[in-house]
Write a protein that binds this DNA or RNA. Structure first.
Lengths: 338, 338
DNA sequence: AAAGGCTATACATACGTATTCAGCGGTCTA
DNA sequence: TAGACCGCTGAATACGTATGTATAGCCTTT
């Protein structure tokens, strides 16, 4: 691998000094256009790329963003939320647009906050994914704030939140999904998803569900709500307890796709056809379109989410402004809701 | 954000000079154990972390590996093979063990090789994922070799390959899947997957399929083989043409899970039950266990694959040895194969 | 015409680390 | 006992860039 050209090589070729090269390439207005053009030509010719190490050392920054995935412990290896994985590609692209690199970390929820801490020194900013209110996350966020670190979370915006948040409009998604079912003539719509602690987004989806019902003159029935974490097994179990309760229902709105799929399986196992009992999920994970029947669900636009996260974080770093953002959602109707 | 401590701060605290700190932390044997202990204690106390920029600048290396995902162009955004995504977490962990960072890039297959080129200067080594023999990849690999870059590919090992490859035992996987179906008493097993150009792994899976059939005294029937790319639509279409041909079959081995799921859907649509016609896939993507019925498939161990990739690449970088590796596969039997 | 202001560039330096070389005390050998 | 040698540490320096400060040239102003 031949030696990389340095800014001195460019300077020599362009007939200027090294500092001028640096300024020309960084868009410093003190450099005349004629000079800049010569420098750019020379840089192009030698395939010159700024040395990130040297540049970062000098500027005292890394031009790197860290993404922290918090995965739930599972028996064999960690299972990452598919939605978060789908953010990865678009995030990388957006970062590249800004000239930032993306550093990926996977964290066990159980591990120490030390890791956040370390990442806060390696990167100019942090993106927190999968950071519900599992565990005692507050002290960790407070620590980050105390360190002066820039960070953005994906999740429920909501009330007593710490730091900046980007989220999708969970409440509206819940409303749209439920309204869709109502429009199909369903009246007894069950809700599958844990309310209260654990998954803040679920609370908002639940609120949207209730609002839609009330708008149709229906009072939410507590008999039709079952706790379920986002997992296939929980979705299955939720449906079973629903049947046990004996409360009649003609549709299901699950707060997560995987639980919705679990519920569909359980339904089919007891011989109930699925477009017959309509099912709607939330997330639009890849498996949603592969299930049978394909799952109607609330789609979160991964690219928009990724770009919003990056944009927000970089704004926080470079301009210092911190504005929460809520992204729109879209109902994707497939066969599971008739 | 308070100023990061430097090696000078550690030196002062430990009562030694800065070079000694550097040596102590990098495990240089010239440092006495007593001194090293003092240095480590001081470093711990101040939460000292080596400045990557400075270190990289001095050593002329980045201690970074680049992962290049090559995604297939799809109408809306790029769809990444779920298996590759599942490699990500384990790869990051393994890298961290070695003290390397992981830089992620997503590439359009159509884009210039310049990107590889650039990445080859930003990273000490490159991992190529999704680099089938789509397009004209040979010249690009040759360019990388010419640059003296270290890289490892995931894919089919095979014959005229360029560079080092880590792969799973596709041939054995095809053999195991087919043997499993034979043991279930199936005799007319269709193969769904494109043979020839495009997906080198598929050829190996096909070879395993043929070997298993021949071992059972069955001659592979060309009527029972249908081309299909790894997509749900192609799997569906493949099954339709299979039915059109009128060749009877009692089982299906698909060279990819997504095609297998597509085929199952098509089967169910024409009223054929799936454990009745047995279906086996390949990959064990997350959706495989969520399909209905859950899909029997050949599991590639993502963690083993990730670690093999990293280990191989780092060996190439640090020791200069390049050994191809083939990882074992495992048949995961679920309900789709009765 | 001399002083002042402005523009475009060069000079010098600092960022934090790793490494080469030199030095210092002590042990071993002849 | 002198010289060679070894184990450990410190001084000096280089990596490539970005930036504060100085300087040279030119134009304006009175």
């Amino acid at each position: 691998m031949q030696r990389r050209p340095t800014s001195f090589d460019i300077a020599a070729l362009a007939g200027v000094s090294q500092p001028t090269v640096s300024r020309a390439l960084s868009g410093n207005p003190a450099v005349s256009e004629a000079t800049r053009a010569r420098v750019l030509a020379a840089a192009q010719e030698l395939h010159y790329k700024v040395n990130k190490n040297a540049s970062g050392l000098r500027r005292q920054q890394s031009r790197t963003l860290a993404v922290l995935f918090f995965d739930e412990q599972s028996p064999e290896g960690a299972v990452i939320n598919p939605f978060y994985l789908s953010l990865l590609g678009p995030m990388v692209r957006r970062c590249a647009d800004y000239g930032y690199d993306l550093l990926i970390s996977f964290q066990q929820l159980s591990s120490d906050w030390h890791v956040d801490y370390e990442d806060s020194r390696k990167a100019d900013g942090i993106i927190l994914l999968g950071y519900g209110d599992y565990l005692d996350y507050r002290p960790r966020l407070e620590k980050l704030i105390e360190l002066g670190a820039h960070f953005v979370r994906w999740g429920s915006g909501g009330d007593g939140q710490l730091g900046t948040t980007v989220s999708c409009d969970n409440e509206q998604g819940g409303f749209d999904a439920t309204t869709h079912l109502l429009q199909q003539g369903r009246r007894k719509i069950a809700f599958i998803g844990t309310i209260g602690a654990g998954y803040p987004e679920f609370n908002e989806r639940w609120r949207g569900y209730c609002r839609a019902l009330r708008a149709a003159g229906i009072v939410p029935d507590d008999q039709l709500r079952i706790d379920a974490a986002p997992s296939e097994a929980d979705g299955r179990a939720a449906l079973d307890s629903l049947l046990e309760r004996g409360a009649g229902f003609d549709a299901i709105f699950a707060a997560s796709d995987v639980a919705a799929i679990g519920a569909m399986h359980a339904l089919q196992q007891v011989g109930r056809s699925v477009p017959d009992i309509a099912v709607v999920g939330f997330d639009d994970i890849p498996a949603a379109s592969l299930s049978s029947p394909p799952l109607t669900t609330v789609t979160q636009d991964a690219r928009a989410a990724a770009e919003a996260l990056i944009d927000t974080l970089i704004a926080a770093i470079e301009v210092g402004e911190c504005v929460d953002r809520v992204l729109p959602v879209r109902l994707t109707v497939r066969d599971s809701s008739g």
